[in-house]
Design a protein around this nucleic acid. Structure first.
Lengths: 136, 136, 136, 136
DNA sequence: GTGGTCTAGACCACG
DNA sequence: GTGGTCTAGACCACT
């Protein structure tokens, strides 16, 4: 079980609980957290991040409903087995929606398509625990 | 003045005012609206889209502060001359930030990198008024 | 749009927010609420049920993540278009899980299988807005 | 004393003590455990299942208060004689309540009534030690 | 100790 | 007006 650091930025546009969700999502997707690994307790993480325990609880609750973790009251939260919760149509719909959102966000920055795609690829590799050193 | 259709979807996750901004941004970026073209009046657009005039006004106000349009009090809003308001560092920062956000949004959908990049490319081309299949 | 009554029972073993979710779920499944219908506002329902607004908000938030309603900040919540959010495997898994749970709950009441199945069928028909009057 | 296997699943939504109760309930209802059979000791079962002895003790305590087992201090727990503790009205009430709960749980999975009833029948037969396909 | 629920009250973004 | 987020503090069930 790798060392895990959850980072919260107050200047971020995303709400705190969403940042927590994203951090754990990426940690699980990249393999930094593996099935069966225990998450920090609600109280422990709330102290570590200096936020309200309810905020952590909300994030944990959503992670559970996303199927990424299993909750065991009295024991804690544990990384769940990988599974596909959503129908293929819903997955596709969400990918398209996120793509549209991304395009809207960057369209006025006047980058070329290649620059945009390269930037995305860099982040994708990073999220999978890979540094972008090879050719594109 | 080019033919222009502003589309608002009630099912969209973005707030209405943001959708308006994005629609005009894309229209300007793709050349469907050119420098000097007049935007519809607040009242006219609010009637056309069946939304609150305040919402349109808010969108127009942000378009102006983004530098995409010039306000001519008493006459209306006009597409501004293309300019670059942001430093290259700021542009790069926003691109990276949007990329990170996008990756967070789709990481748990379990698509391959290629599928994700393809989806984005499709939307990029669409935003530039191009269909992906078949060269233009 | 039919008249809608949400009932909360303090003696119920389910938490309040879950009761609210179930009530709206059944209202939507049975057609008592149709696509596009507006749900009562968080504040209005919290007053009507004499509970904390946050509790209603939590229920509404889960209804949204279940895909049953669309939220439009500033406007309210509306019944969403019917869709299949979950993969067939996940649907089957949840059906089996619920069946097991149900059997565990009634196994010691010493009813015959037929009595149990009849009871369930009655409730199923009721949930679809049908009174059980025909033969079984 | 019949051969008996108590199965605890960490992925189950039910708390551990409830799983233990359900397992013994089903074993008794199906005849796998008969009147007078001795249950494993608290310590033995807790070791076998790798769980906290308090959890086993809690389950045993509830089994006793349900009237399914008799406690003989110093000797252990033994399966009690079959008896009916609940009034018919109470039994019927609990069946209806469990049915309602079940319907609420599955109503949004969009299965047909037949699929739901089939799933339940399968589990009912399984709980009585019968496979559904092929008579026994 | 663990997570889950509920209340109370505040502030923000959206229309 | 609408819903969304966060804090503070309480109580409960489970291990």
């Amino acid at each position: 079980m790798a060392k895990l650091a959850i980072n919260i930025r107050t200047g971020d546009s995303r709400p705190i609980f969403k940042q927590i969700i994203d951090e754990f999502s990426k940690a699980i997707a990249s393999g930094k957290l593996s099935q069966g690994d225990k998450l920090p307790s609600v109280r422990a993480l709330s102290v570590q991040l200096s936020i309200n325990p309810n905020t952590v609880a909300k994030a944990y609750s959503e992670l559970a409903s996303l199927g990424l973790v299993d909750t065991h009251p009295g024991l804690g939260l544990f990384v769940a087995e990988p599974k596909q919760l959503l129908s293929n149509m819903e997955r596709k719909k969400r990918l398209t929606s996120a793509s549209k959102q991304f395009v809207s966000d960057v369209i006025n920055l006047h980058f070329t398509d290649k620059e945009i795609l390269d930037s995305l690829e860099t982040e994708l590799l990073a999220s999978r625990g890979v540094r972008k050193t090879g050719t594109v």
